[in-house]
């Protein structure tokens, strides 16, 4: 029983990371109907930047903030330079550009920072276990940070004028443009936010899984599963889906398939969702008029 509780708790901890990446994916999907296959590699790159800043002598939280801002700019620039011309391109082209981005980020990361596995510092160092040994300080801290970020994103979209404008631009670009919203700017902003979210997720998971250029490949897969489970057009659903996938992964890994097949569990979740509930648990059912 205690083992089960432990598995669920640590599932929720990693679930928070998946939820952040899933939310980043959904934000881009909502506004452009693109799935960013490079989201994981972009987050890995950001995490390496954070490591470089820390090694250069910046305090952890200073490096954290700087990385979030750098990632934001990076995401926005990619949207403006690469993705804007792809707005009306066929699916194959947009998927191809994302795959190209993935390759570029992956090898640039390896090129600049080398392929050796590195450890990444955690700001929550104290080694005493919390909550009766259920959680390490880092797990608790990472969960608090991810939850804070998710709440901040929620508040931003719900209660600010800019957030409203961004939602409008995603929901109905033509009408938004008519009422004076700069849709292009909103898309770039969305990409920036998504990249920043990915960076936070990367920095929070790196102390656990260690840093290497392919660090986020598996995490991206779980995030896909989470986003699909919650409904790829529903941000709140994607967050819930992310947490759920974290728990499913841990319970499945511990009791059903064993740790060797954890990644395949994500694949099975994706296939199962797409076959039995293609719109996810909270997604809108799309009806196409022919």
């Amino acid at each position: 029983m205690i083992g089960l509780l432990h598995q669920i708790l640590s599932g929720l901890v990693t679930g928070g990371i998946y939820a952040s990446v899933a939310l980043a994916l959904v934000m881009i999907y909502q506004s452009t109907h693109h799935v960013n296959f490079a989201q994981g590699e972009m987050a890995t790159f950001s995490t390496y930047i954070a490591l470089a800043l820390i090694e250069a002598g910046l305090p952890y939280w200073g490096a954290f903030l700087a990385t979030v801002m750098i990632s934001f700019v990076m995401g926005a620039v990619i949207q403006i330079v690469l993705m804007r011309p792809m707005a009306n391109a066929p699916v194959l082209s947009s998927v191809g550009v994302f795959i190209g981005l993935l390759l570029v980020f992956n090898s640039i990361t390896g090129w600049i920072f080398s392929y050796t596995i590195k450890s990444f510092p955690s700001p929550f160092e104290a080694s005493r276990p919390l909550l009766g040994g259920f959680l390490s300080p880092h797990e608790l801290g990472a969960t608090v940070v991810t939850l804070a970020v998710l709440v901040a994103v929620y508040l931003f979209f719900r209660h600010t004028k800019l957030g409203l404008a961004m939602r409008a631009a995603a929901f109905n670009p033509v009408s938004s443009r008519l009422v004076g919203i700069r849709v292009g700017h909103m898309l770039a902003l969305g990409w920036g936010l998504a990249a920043a979210l990915g960076a936070v997720a990367g920095m929070m998971i790196a102390p656990v899984v260690f840093l290497d250029p392919n660090m986020m490949a598996g995490i991206l897969l779980y995030a896909f599963a989470g986003a699909l489970l919650g409904g790829i057009d529903n941000p709140a659903g994607a967050v819930i889906g992310g947490f759920a996938v974290g728990v499913i992964e841990n319970l499945g890994g511990a009791y059903v398939v064993g740790t060797e097949l954890k990644l395949s569990l994500a694949l099975f979740t994706i296939v199962a969702v797409l076959v039995f509930r293609p719109n996810g648990l909270f997604g809108r059912v799309l009806v196409t008029r022919v």
Binding site: V35, V95, F224, A225, S264, I270, L274
Partner: peptide, 21 residues
């Protein structure tokens, strides 16, 4: 049965999980 993007996603997941399988 799924549209273009979903198939891309599923097959991508297959490719990532393959070595583990």
């Amino acid at each position: 049965r799924l549209g273009g993007l979903y198939l891309a996603l599923t097959t991508f997941a297959l490719a990532v999980a393959l070595p583990q399988l």
